[in-house]
């Protein structure tokens, strides 16, 4: 068996599906794409997958990883998959690899939080200080890129999947505590590898 490492984006409507939903979604994508996947044995055969650590619900993933075990590797895997995805998943790169070691190699992620509204900055700063993350809050910047002439707040934090690190959800709670947040964009920009 050989593996293919798929680098993909999860975005748009699909930011709201859970990791379990995402697994089911990928099972169907690879069956539709017909790329010669290797299946587990038993009454409910499943494609052999290994995923990078779950994205929290609500987060975009700009570079997520998935290793797929292949029985009969075919050549145009990327195109085949991209023809079989629902809106909200897109594959950027695929690489054949000999061993799948996602479980050990990925140790964390760089998370980005952007929002509008929520004016009580001092409260947020205090919360971040308590979590030991005070250095990561960026100054407000113009939202020209999205075409809204307003101020958006932005925060980018590397978080490890180890014990003791706050979950991204925790930070969203902090942001929510700063007043009425009217727009949010959450993403995992990058996976941090060993």
């Amino acid at each position: 068996m050989v593996f293919v490492r798929v680098e993909y984006r999860k975005f748009g409507p699909l930011v709201f599906i859970s990791h379990l939903d995402l697994i089911r979604c990928w099972e169907r994508i690879v069956r539709r794409a017909d790329i010669g996947v290797s299946f587990t044995k038993g009454f409910h055969p499943r494609p052999r997958f290994s995923f990078s650590p779950p994205l929290p619900v609500g987060f975009e993933g700009e570079r997520e990883l998935l290793d797929i075990g292949l029985e009969r590797p075919c050549l145009d895997i990327k195109n085949r998959i991209n023809r079989a995805v629902p809106q909200g998943i897109y594959v950027n790169n695929v690489f054949f690899i000999q061993h799948s070691d996602l479980g050990e190699s990925v140790i964390g992620g760089l998370y980005n939080f952007q929002w509008l509204g929520g004016t009580d900055r001092s409260k947020l700063e205090e919360g971040l200080r308590n979590l030991g993350l005070q250095d990561w809050l960026y100054t407000s910047e113009q939202l020209t890129s999205v075409g809204i002439s307003n101020f958006k707040n932005s925060l980018s934090v590397p978080l490890l999947f180890e014990k003791g690190y706050p979950s991204p959800k925790k930070i969203v709670e902090l942001i929510d505590g700063t007043g009425e947040v009217i727009w949010l964009r959450l993403s995992r920009v990058q996976l941090l590898e060993r």
């Binding site: 748009g12 409507p13 699909l14 709201f16 599906i17 859970s18 939903d21 169907r28 539709r32 619900v57 609500g58 079989a84 995805v85 629902p86 809106q87 909200g88």
Partner: peptide, 10 residues
């Protein structure tokens, strides 16, 4: 359950 409202099915 936000996923119930997103539609966009294959």
């Amino acid at each position: 359950k936000p996923a119930s409202y997103i539609g966009n099915e294959y």
